[in-house]
């Protein structure tokens, strides 16, 4: 199992364990982490699983695809740490990853 930490916008911390191969959005939903709507169910089509990943983890999390970038462009809350959680596969190198949640999903 891989250990992940989700931090809500209000500071509340959720430590969860996820099986390798799942995605970050599903890991949050499976563990009842609030703040991720996942309106499209993980198809990179709605932008409502927006999260912030510390830049030091960016290499391990992989590069966002063109379609993910296009969806992220639509959220006014986007910054250089923005990713869509459904597009990040949970693998061993991400053990210990800290994920911050935005105040609002778009």
């Amino acid at each position: 199992m891989i250990e992940l930490t989700f931090i809500e916008h209000n500071g509340e911390v959720h430590n969860v364990r996820a099986a390798p191969g799942t995605n970050l959005m599903q890991a949050a939903l499976d563990n009842n982490v609030p703040g991720i709507d996942a309106d499209c169910g993980g198809s990179c089509a709605c932008g409502t699983c927006h999260v912030f990943i510390d830049t030091s983890w960016m290499d391990k999390a992989g590069k966002p695809s063109e379609s993910e970038c296009a969806m992220l462009e639509m959220t006014p809350e986007k910054n250089e740490m923005s990713r869509l959680a459904c597009q990040i596969t949970v693998e061993t190198p991400l053990n210990g990853l800290v994920v911050k949640l935005p105040e609002f999903q778009m």
């Binding site: 996942a38 309106d39 499209c40 089509a45 932008g47 409502t48």
Partner: peptide
């Protein structure tokens, strides 16, 4: 319940959904 198509999907997804 939120997984519906009324707002569309992709880059033209409804801007005023909220």
């Amino acid at each position: 319940v939120r997984q519906h198509l009324s707002f569309g999907m992709g880059i033209h997804r409804c801007m005023g959904n909220r």
